[in-house]
C-alpha cells in the first residue's frame, strides 16, 4: 500500500500514562496520535477544541506541567508520564468556576465558545506567572489565541477582571 517508496511502518501501539486534571489515566496510542485527539477520543475529554491543527488558532491549548502548549502540535506519546490540565480541570472540586472562568462569564468574553477552552488555559497560566498584567502584557499573552466572535475587547476586560478576582481571593 506504500506509494512513495517509504519503508513499511508498523503503527505499533504505545502504552502511556498521563495525569490529566489530577487523575492518572492510561491509554494505548499509535505514535502519531496528537495529544488533542488522545484527550478527546481516548480519554473522552472533549472540552479541548480542535480548530486548525497547525498551531495557529490556539483552541487546543492545554497546560503541560503547568505551561500552556498546543495539544495539536504535541504527540501524546511524547508527554507520557507528564501532567496535563484541560479546561475540565480548571474549576474547583465541586464544579465551582475558577476566577478566570467567572470573569469570562461576567464580562461576556465568549459568544459561540469554541475558542474559550484555549483562552481559559492560556489566561490561567498568564495570571499565575503575572498576577497584575498591564494592557500590553494581556494583549501579548493572548496574541496566540484567535476568536472569530467577540472582537477581543471583552476577553481583554475579562483577563483584567480575573486578575482582580484572584487578588481579592488571595
Amino acid at each position: 500500500m506504500k506509494t512513495d517508496g517509504r519503508p513499511a511502518v508498523s503503527e505499533a501501539l504505545h502504552e502511556i500514562t498521563l495525569t490529566v486534571n489530577g487523575v492518572v489515566r492510561e491509554a494505548k496510542v499509535p505514535g502519531r496520535r496528537l495529544l488533542s485527539d488522545c484527550l478527546r477520543h481516548e480519554l473522552g475529554l472533549t472540552g479541548t477544541h480542535v480548530g486548525c491543527e497547525h498551531g495557529v488558532c490556539g483552541c487546543c491549548t492545554v497546560l503541560l506541567d503547568g505551561d500552556p502548549v498546543r495539544s495539536c502540535l504535541t504527540f501524546a506519546v511524547s508527554v507520557d508520564g507528564h501532567e496535563i490540565t484541560t479546561v475540565e480541570g480548571l474549576s474547583g472540586p465541586g464544579g465551582e468556576l475558577s476566577p478566570v472562568q467567572r470573569a469570562f462569564s461576567e464580562c461576556h468574553a465568549l459568544q459561540c465558545g469554541f475558542c474559550t477552552p484555549g483562552f481559559l488555559c492560556t489566561v490561567t497560566a498568564l495570571l499565575r506567572d503575572n498576577p497584575a498584567p498591564t494592557e500590553d502584557e494581556v494583549v501579548e499573552g493572548i496574541s496566540g489565541n484567535l476568536c472569530r466572535c467577540t472582537g477581543y475587547q471583552n476577553i481583554v476586560k475579562a483577563v483584567h477582571r480575573a486578575a482582580e478576582l484572584m487578588g481579592d481571593e488571595a
Partner: peptide, 16 residues
C-alpha cells in the same frame, strides 16, 4: 514539534 508537526499534520512530510 512546532514546525515539524504542522508539516506532518498537513502531510507535507511523512518520515517513516
Amino acid at each position: 514539534g512546532q514546525s515539524l508537526i504542522p508539516l506532518l499534520n498537513m502531510r507535507l512530510a511523512a518520515p517513516s
